[in-house]
Simulated assay, not measured.
Amino acid sequence: MRKAGRIGFVYLSVFIALLLTVMPMPQLVKLARPDWALLVLMYWTMALPQRVSVGTAFFTGFVVDVLVGTVLGVNALAFAVVIFVVAQHHLKMRNFSVVQQSLLLGLLLALYQLLLFWLSHFLTGVYFMPQYLWPVVTGMLVWPWLFWLLRRYRRQLKIQ
C-alpha cells in the first residue's frame, strides 16, 4: 500500500469516529456515548504525534461542533487542549499498560467534559449535571478495545 493510502486510513478512522458521534441512538444510551472522535484522536496522537496533533484536533472539534449543533469553537477548543496534553506526554503514555492508559485517558476525558461544561456555561448558561460524566466512564471502558483495533490496523498497514 502506498504511503498516502496508509495516512488516509488515519483520517478514515477519524471520519468513522465522527459518524459514530452523530449516529442516532435512544436518549438513555445517548447520554453515555463515548467521545469517539476524541478517543481516536488520542490514539493517533500517541502513535503518530508528527501526523496528528493540535491542528487536526481543532479541525475535528470544529466539525463535531457543526455536526452536533453546539456553539462553534467549543469542541474545537476542548479537543485542542486535550490533544495538546496528549502530544506533550505521548512518549510517557506509550509506555503505560492499556489499563493505566485507560485511567489516564479517563482523566483527560473528564478534563474535556469539564471544559465543555465550563465553556457552555459561560456562553449559554448551562448548569452542571452528573450525567455529563457518563462518557468518561464509557470512554475508559471502550479504550482497550479501540486501542487494540487501531494498533492492529496500524501495524498491519505499516502506518508510520
Rank of each mutant, 00 (worst) to 15 (best):
V126M: 05
S120G: 07
L109P: 02
F58Q: 05
L18M: 15
W44R: 01
Q88P: 00
M25F: 06
W118L: 11
T21V: 08
M129E: 14
G73P: 00
G61T: 05
S102E: 03
R33A: 09
H90R: 11
P130R: 01
A78M: 04
K3A: 03
G8I: 01
V137M: 03
I7E: 09
V99Q: 10
L104F: 12
K158P: 00
Y11K: 01
M93F: 15
F147M: 12
L91W: 05
F96R: 03
V68I: 13
P26F: 07
L107T: 06
V22N: 03
V63W: 04
L28S: 14
P135Q: 09
T60I: 11
S97R: 03
P49D: 05
P34A: 05
T70Y: 12
W44V: 02
L91M: 11
R154V: 09
I7D: 07
M46R: 09
A76K: 02
Y11G: 01
P135K: 02
L28A: 10
L38G: 08
K92S: 07
H121A: 14
S13H: 08
V136S: 03
L150Q: 11
L48P: 00
V10G: 00
D65I: 07
L18Q: 14
L141R: 00
F58K: 08
V74A: 03
R33I: 04
K30D: 14
W36C: 08
L149M: 15
Q27F: 10
L41H: 02
S53A: 15
F62D: 07
K158W: 10
G69P: 07
L20Q: 05
V142C: 13
L19W: 08
W44F: 10
G106L: 09
I159T: 02
S53R: 12
A57C: 08
L105N: 13
T124Y: 06
W143E: 06
Q27M: 10
F128A: 13
W118C: 00
F117E: 03
V81W: 09
M23W: 13
R155W: 06
V71S: 10
F62W: 15
L149I: 10
T45C: 11
V85M: 11
H89T: 06
V22Y: 05
F9S: 02
T138F: 01
L141I: 14
P135Y: 02
V29P: 07
L111M: 14
Q156K: 12
L72V: 14
F58T: 06
R6N: 07
W148S: 15
W134H: 04
K158M: 12
L108D: 00
G73T: 01
V22F: 03
Q156S: 10
L146E: 11
I83N: 00
V29S: 10
R33P: 03
M46K: 06
W143R: 05
V64T: 09
L111E: 05
L141C: 13
V52H: 10
L38P: 04
T70L: 07
A32T: 12
A32S: 15
F122Y: 12
G125H: 09
A80T: 11
V98I: 15
Y11W: 15
W118H: 05
H89V: 00
K92V: 10
M42I: 10
P24A: 03
V64S: 05
R94G: 03
H90Y: 15
H89A: 07
F9I: 08
L38D: 09
V63G: 03
V64Y: 04
W134A: 13
V71T: 13
T60K: 04
T124E: 11
M140D: 06
K92E: 05
Q88E: 11
A37F: 00
P144E: 12
L123I: 09
